[in-house]
């Protein structure tokens, strides 16, 4: 009886293997990749956060020392980086979302040449960061840069832009406006999915264009608003853009551009404090996860369409 049962299991599993092995073979690269490049590093990163490892001597288990250092001795410095990152996120997310939405509304019309305008507005998003860095450093050069000539032509005072601690962060936010085309494209995609008959019905009822925007376009694209909001939080909390346009590896004048991601990079790949950097990375990850969870909790206003 027992042998018959085990025989059955063997037969059954043989059958499973026979019917499944082609599928398994096809997805084998993905399975291996997930284990090698996702699962193992993910676990290892967590372990590293409790270690002292400089890539020369073997890693040493030091318990919560890394976290202790971050929250005591280095707290002022680390908090400084978080503060800059938060300020950047809290200003740039709403402003960029609003402006790119406005841009999308403006470009969501069927007038001749619209595709051409969209392409040119999106163009800054595909330029290599290195090329942008070269041109930004030149445009925003203190005193003699062309941006100072432009603002002076408008009667505004010249600025030191990236070279002064008081204006560096605002300059970075200003620069990010050239990337508005990326958000705009996503909004346009969302607008495309709004049924046209809604607008037809509204204009039959005599609703003005402005009213249609507030009563149809904005509510119907709320899923995309939420998606962009979450992406904005994840993206700007990992802001790394100051790295290329400053002369000191992304710190900026008086550490005024020392975003937390730049700090993690410096700790890991310049000072080779792998354990300490991992601990910082996990703290950042935790902060991002909390912010996203908070947004999800307050997402009753999002409309996902009737079929969901």
């Amino acid at each position: 009886m027992v042998s018959l049962k085990s025989n059955g299991i063997v037969k059954k599993s043989l059958k499973v293997i026979k019917s499944s092995y082609t599928g398994w073979l096809f997805i084998m690269p993905m399975i291996l990749g997930t284990i090698l490049f996702c699962a193992i590093p993910f676990v290892q990163s967590f372990i590293l956060a409790f270690m002292d490892y400089d890539m020369m001597r073997p890693p040493q288990w030091i318990g919560i020392e890394n976290f202790k250092a971050i929250f005591t001795v280095d707290f002022r410095e680390v908090w400084g980086s978080f503060r800059i990152t938060f300020i950047y996120a809290f200003i740039s997310i709403p402003v960029t979302m609003f402006l790119s939405y406005f841009l999308a509304l403006l470009l969501n019309r069927k007038i001749p040449g619209m595709m051409f305008f969209r392409v040119l507005i999106y163009l800054p998003c595909i330029i290599p960061p290195i090329a942008s860095a070269i041109v930004w450093k030149d445009i925003f050069a203190p005193q003699i840069g062309i941006m100072n000539r432009i603002v002076q032509a408008f009667g505004l005072p010249a600025s030191d832009w990236l070279s002064s601690a008081s204006s560096a962060l605002m300059t970075i936010i200003f620069m990010s406006f050239w990337g508005l085309g990326g958000g705009m494209i996503l909004w346009l995609a969302a607008f495309k999915n709004i049924p046209v008959d809604l607008y037809e019905a509204a204009s039959l009822d005599g609703a003005s264009k402005l009213r249609q925007i507030f009563s149809i376009t904005i509510p119907m694209s709320s899923a995309m608003i939420f998606y962009n909001l979450i992406n904005g939080v994840i993206g700007s909390m990992q802001m790394f853009g100051s790295f290329l346009i400053t002369d000191n590896g992304g710190r900026g004048p008086d550490n005024s551009l020392y975003f937390i991601s730049v700090r993690i990079y410096q700790e890991a790949f310049v000072s080779f404090n792998m354990g300490y950097a991992s601990a910082l990375a996990w703290i950042l990850f935790f902060v991002i996860a909390c912010m996203s969870a908070l947004l999800f909790k307050h997402s009753k206003w999002v409309f996902y369409g009737e079929d969901m």
């Binding site: 993905m30 399975i31 997930t34 490049f37 996702c38 193992i40 590093p41 993910f42 290892q44 990163s45 590293l48 490892y53 890539m55 990992q238 991601s261 993690i264 890991a268 790949f269 792998m274 950097a277 991992s278 990375a281 996990w282 950042l284 990850f285 991002i288």
Partner: peptide
């Protein structure tokens, strides 16, 4: 599900152990 969930892995956390590996 396993594959899709890798999208959520945070780049900032993964970069350091990848270097070690």
């Amino acid at each position: 599900t396993m594959m899709i969930s890798t999208i959520m892995l945070p780049g900032v956390v993964m970069q350091i152990p990848m270097y070690v590996i």
